[in-house]
Structures are given as C-alpha cells and as structure tokens.
Design a binder for these strands. Sequence first.
RNA 1: GCCCCGGUAGCUCAGAGGAUAGAGCACUUGACUUCUAAUCAAGCUGUCACAGGUUCGAAUCCUGUCCGGGGUACCA
Length: 600
Amino acid sequence: MNSFKCITQLADFLQQEFPQASFPENWTISAEKCPPNMDGDLTVNCFRFAKILRSSPDKIADKVLEFFNQNSDVDKAEKIKAFVNISLSPSAIYRDSVADIDSLLQSSQLEDAGKKRVLIEYSAPNTNKPQHLGHVRNNTLGMSLASLLSRVGHDVIQINLVNDRGIHICKSMLAYERFGEGITPELSGIKGDHLVGDFYVKYNSALKQQLDDLRSAKPELAEENDEKLFLETEIGQATQKMLQDWENGDEKVIALWKEMNSWVFAGFDQTYKRMGIKFDHTYLESETYLLGKDIVAEGLARGVFTKRPDGAVTIDLGKMGEKVVLRSDGTSVYITQDIGTTLKKYSDYKPEEQIWVVGDEQILHFKMLFEIMKKLGYPWANDLHHLAYGMVNLPSGKMKSREGTVVDADELFDEMVNLSEEACRERYGDSVSAEEIANRAETIGMGALKFMLLKFNPKTTMMFDPQASVKFEGDTGPYVQYACARINSIERKAVEKGLKFDAGTINWKLLDNNEEKTLAITAFFYPKVLQDAAEKMDCSALVDYLLELAKAFNRFYRECPVLAAENEDLAGARMALCHAVRNILTDGLNTLTIEVPEAM
RNA sequence: GCCCCGGUAGCUCAGAGGAUAGAGCACUUGACUUCUAAUCAAGCUGUCACAGGUUCGAAUCCUGUCCGGGGUACCA
C-alpha cells in the first residue's frame, strides 16, 4: 500500500533505535490524519507503540520527535503528550499522494497472497411477490460488497438463489387459478412480479376471510393461531394439495407454476437491471431443494448425525442445542437444503470463501449451518461468512406486507428518479435534451438511494424516512456526484480556454493553502479506506470517506480558484489536484456501484 | 427463561482503548455581476441508558441493572 516516505523512514529508524523491541513481521506504521483542531497534517500516536517497542510512550515520542526534526520532508514537528504531530512540506505531501494518481489508485490492490476467490450470495427473493425496500437494501449491500471485494483484487462470483417453490408460491398460484380470469402481464400492462404479487395479496385476504368464518363457526377454535388453523380451511387444504401435486409433477400445476414464475423473473430482471446487478449464476431452489439429503444420509452413516427413535435425523450442536436435519417423515428442512447448496456452490466454483448476505434474524441458522459443515469435515468450512444486516423500518414502524406498509422497490426507484429529474429540469430547463436529463436523473436518483442505504453500517437496524431520504443535500450521493460534476465542468472550461496541465511538470510546491494540502492528504488515505472496508466487509466506511473527500474538495473550490488562478503554473497544479480528486471520487462511487453524471 | 444485537445532540446516524466525542438533518445568520448555491461560512445542540470495575487513559474492555429489537420450529 502507499505510504508517506517519512513515515516509512520512521519505521526503519525505530527498528534501529529499539533493538530490544519485538516487531511483528512486516511491521509498518500507519500515520493518522491530524485532528482538525490540531496544528499539523499527520499525527503519530506513540501510545500504540509502547508494547511493541517495550518502552514508555513518552520516551518513544521523544525519539519520534527527534527523527522528524531532522527529516527533510517535515517542516514542523510537535510533541503533545505521546502524540507527535507533523506538518509536511508541500512537495512531500503531493509527491506521496496525488502526484501519481494512477499508482495511488492501483495501490489499493492487495498483495497476491491476500487475494481470494470469493463467492457471494445475495438477493434470494421469493417468486410470489415483487421486491421491496428490504430487498433493495440486501441487493445494494450484496452488489456493493461484491464490487468492493473485487476492487481490492479478489476474484468475486455473484450468486442469486431464488426461492421459486413451496407453499407460499402455491398461494399466489391458487389465487390466480381462482380469480385470475386468464390475465397476463401483457394483457394487464402490469409488471409480472407485481401481477403475481397482487394475487398473493388476494390469496391472503381470501384466507383471512375463511379463517374468520371458521372462528365464528367454531368458537372453540377462536384462540388458535392462523398457522394451526390453516389446514382447517378449504383454501388451506387446496393449497396443500397444490403443493403435493407440484411435488408429484402434475402437468397442469407445473405449467401454471412455470408460466407465473416466468412473469416474475421478467419483472425481477427489470429491477436488477435498473440497479445494475448482474449475477454470475442464479440457482433455483426448485432445482436444489433436495440436494442436502444424500449428504445427510452419508453423514448419518459416518456418525456425524444420529437417528432418533421417532425417525428424525439430528445433530448435537452443543450450546446451540439439537438440530433436526431430516424430519421423521424423511423430508428436508431449511438447513438441509442449505447444506446441499453450500456444497453445490463449493463444487461448482471452488471458492476460498463464501459469503451470504442475509438478514440478521437468521444469525443462529447460519451459525448452525457453519458448525454442521465443520462437523461434516469440509476443510473450507472455516471460511463461510454470514453478512447479517438489520431490518429497514419506517417512521410508522416495521414494514409489513400484510398491512400494506411495504415500500415497493420499483415505485421507490421511480420516486427517487422523478425527484432528481425535477431538480435537473429546474437547473437546465430546455438547454439540455430530454434524453440527457432523463439519463442524469436516473444516475442521480438511483445513486442517492444506494448511497443512503450504504451509509448505514450493515448490521444496524435502519430507519428509512421517505421525506428525508429523497433529499439530495447534505451527506448524500448527489453531494459526492456534484463535486465530480464541478470538476468535470472546470475541465471542460479549461479546454475552452486552452489551459492544459502536463502531469510531468506540475509545480506542486505552489499548492500551499490549507485547503489544498488537506485535500491531498485526505486523498492519500483512499487505498487504506478501500482495504479496511473490504477487510471489514462494510461499505459504510467508504461512504463516509467519500463524503469527507467531497467536503474537502468543496472547501478547496470555494477558496482556491482554478481557472482564474494568479498564473498558469498555479492553475495547472490545481487542475492536476482536481483531476486526481475526481478520479478518486469516481472510483469510489463506482466501487459502490454508483455512477457519476457528466454534469448536474 | 436462555442466546444475540443495540441504547451517543431535538431527529437520523458515525466513532469500538487515545487528544477538547463528530457529521447530516432541523433551527438562526451570512455568501450567487465569481470555475455550477444539489455549494460554502458562522452559530446553537451532549448525564455517550444507569451503577460498579480494569487502565497512565474508557462512549469504546469486564460485571451487574434498566429499556428496545431479534432469535430460541420436524417454518423459510
């Protein structure tokens, strides 16, 4: 990774000065940015070295100060407690950061030994209803993590596993059979997943009606819950029958299933396309749901699992308790399928690591799954990871499909894009073509939404406030895009004015304003931010960083005129700085799967 | 009951051993004849849930308590 020369030299110096120390292999110092209220560019925290150097923080700080005082890159060094704050000479700042922007961007690549083949599974929708805001968070987290991991050099495989079978799928099928009257997406003009979802809603109200009727007819059942009474209803029995017919390969049921699923897939394709998602492969649960059974049989023979007197096959997972992996009637449970698909994904792609992007209510499920894979003896079972993310709540509380409080994905996209289109039109009116306005609005609206979702740490249960979320001011995606647009604009105008800069002959020393230096130093940290975010599998760190860099740019923009600089050398140096910053911002947004409009 | 996650400014959230705890929104004020005001500057805002403990140093680690969310299926 990139480093400031004087910091690398400091590490060498300390290794000589403290021979009694116990340095870890490849020991490096990562300097931190000096806090804004302190005087300096970088800070070295000597408290951190006390253990490694086997000396007191204060003594170390004295040595560090002594070193910096005679280092030519350092203009000023100051010791406060065991912190040593340094101000770098402008030439050192730019030489070690933005002067070679291509190699700075490149230095975020991991060393070959750290690169892995990673399989990431996300989205995993059901084919009985359209996707909502919860899926959008999942999709955004998944695609951005995939992009981030691949950005630092991993070989990433993106997988979707669609839940296209089961009793809940039969529900919308049954409702269609009863109330559909042969409607299709083409005839109705309704997007396929929404059309199927409408029947799922119709099913639930029909079921509710029957449950109500049942409870008034048989008061003794009034206290039982819906699940218990499901098979007591006519519609419940019919649904159960349909599932059995499906499993027996009944032609009519299969035909309906295929047709309705094809509608849903066509709808999902549109949603994914709009988000920019491309899976390397989509597994269908209808093709994988029986996979785990033979592994269980084989594990049973090897004594990994045990058969209970009632016939169920189980495994003792210690603190997590006993887990059933095969029902007493011999059928699979959820975890059986996951055992099967985990192995399937492994044998299909041979990943060194598998990641699942799945909600945090399934934390225990995955802990159990991983433990079972270990007990089955797969050597790669230590490299399975559940990226658990929190739910999305609304100001009114939880999203509930039954109560109709879900925020639909496609509608949300439209709303975000329409609002940004309005804003674009306000700015540009007729001076820009309608097509160009629409393109910009799409980029800005979708970018704002993704950025907003990624700003939260994945594990936090987040609140989505539609009123606040559609704003494009403050800590938002458009704020970062806007900084890029400003730089693009400067570059366009520079061409008009015939101003050019030559990367090889920039006189960086001219840039000695605080805004300029802060901008370059902030830029310096980009590779580390990328690697740390990838390591933590958390894009929110990158989001925060991009805001910080954009903010630093906007301050620079205010204070330091580029095109109207006092002379051409200064203009050239500032243009080079802008160019580097724009490349980082664009690279960062692209890493988050957010595009950047040419102008806005 | 047990397990997991959380409680930080009016609101939404960062910070996860280190300096005087931050950002955006909201509110108040100022800046568009200027490279794009989707911007910038200034102001206001805190019992870091509570109580102990460890430490040179704790919002951060440990213990306990309170509050909120999730899990605890032969559901997925």
